[in-house]
């Protein structure tokens, strides 16, 4: 958590912060055959960013963040497949609103609790969402998944093509918007307040901060971003499966964020990138070892490298500076 935010932090965007975007644009031209994977990575970066806001900055531990992602995906999918709403922007809006509504409703409940009870509640809420999606087969397709999603061209002009070019750029544009909003928030007084709550909520109460209300705001915004990411997944895959809901995808997302580095904004970029690329290459050949490796990595990161990849990079840079 070394990225300084707060009242003395320089909010200007540094050069290094443009690098992910340059890389993403370069990827579009240089790796055309990997665009579908790229779109998936961009979607998960947005999802991870939403988790970083509440986990990394506000310090809320949740095992059920997939509830918002899944809800967003299903709302967009159902609207498109069953109700004939095909405008991609409208679908995103609807998904974000639905996820935000779920966020405010569940946040109002879980943020009053702490510790095991809070963990348990987030898990139970995600489990309820999974059960509903699983059992309401007539609407969600149940275990077979929801297919038959058709999406109209973006702004009536850009069709989702077979090579995933439009999908990639669409994801990139939305991630950019999501990143911009999140970054603005983190550098704002509100962001500083969230960090204060994470560091010491007792003290925040004592300086007059309505902690619960601030957390609820952050939680709702995070839910909306996650819902947006879920809807993006539905639009670009034109399919929604049960695997977007429940404990496993929540855990997986947490793994990605931890791998990249929590509470440093760009950990949410690095984590999904590394995880999903590794998964694409390794998981198909060695599914069991892949899972084992993920677990091992998590254990090692927790025991030895709490800052994740970016934390390690920081330390290497710091050490290099010492010798130069």
């Amino acid at each position: 958590m070394t990225r300084a935010v707060g009242y003395a932090a320089d909010p200007r965007i540094r050069f290094a912060e443009w690098l992910p975007w340059l890389a993403a644009v370069a990827g579009f031209f240089l790796l055309p055959e990997y665009l579908p994977l790229g779109a998936r990575i961009l979607t998960y970066v947005l999802f991870a960013l939403s988790l970083d806001l509440i986990l990394g900055y506000a310090g809320i531990i949740t095992l059920g963040h997939s509830a918002f992602f899944g809800l967003g995906a299903y709302v967009a999918g159902i609207l498109a497949a069953k109700l004939g709403v095909t405008d991609p922007l409208l679908l995103l809006l609807a998904a974000a609103c639905a996820a935000g509504a779920l966020g405010i409703a569940t946040g109002a409940v879980i943020l009053r609790t702490h510790g095991l009870t809070q963990l348990m509640l987030t898990l139970a809420i995600a489990a309820v969402c999974l059960e509903i999606a699983h059992k309401a087969t007539s609407i969600t397709g149940g275990a077979d998944g929801l297919s038959g999603i058709t999406i109209a061209p973006i702004f009536g002009a850009f069709k989702f093509d077979l090579y995933g070019r439009t999908a990639y750029l669409w994801c990139l544009a939305l991630l950019f918007a999501g990143w911009w909003v999140t970054r603005k928030m983190i550098y704002s007084p509100f962001g500083a307040t969230l960090c204060g709550i994470r560091e010491n909520s007792v003290r925040m109460h004592a300086i007059g901060v309505p902690v619960y209300r601030r957390l609820l705001t952050a939680y709702t915004i995070s839910a909306m971003l996650a819902g947006l990411a879920g809807a993006l997944l539905a639009e670009t895959n034109q399919f929604v499966g049960l695997n977007v809901l429940g404990f496993e995808p929540s855990g997986e997302l947490m793994v990605m964020l931890i791998l990249g580095g929590v509470g440093r904004l760009y950990g949410a970029f690095v984590g999904p990138l590394v995880y999903l690329i590794a998964q694409d290459f390794l998981a198909k050949q060695f599914p069991e070892y892949w899972y084992f490796g993920i677990g091992l990595m998590l254990v090692v990161v927790v025991l030895f490298a709490r800052g994740g990849i970016l934390g390690i990079a920081d330390r290497i840079v710091a050490r290099a500076r010492k010798y130069v």
């Binding site: 095992l63 510790g115 855990g251 931890i258 069991e288 993920i294 677990g295 091992l296 927790v302």
Partner: peptide
């Protein structure tokens, strides 16, 4: 990890779950 935070414990034990699941599969 007895003195570590809740998050570390949660992550660590999720890691153990992943490893146990994979080991059982193999």
């Amino acid at each position: 990890l007895y003195d570590a935070g809740e998050l570390e414990q949660v992550l660590f034990t999720i890691g153990l779950i992943f490893m146990a699941v994979a080991a059982a599969q193999v």
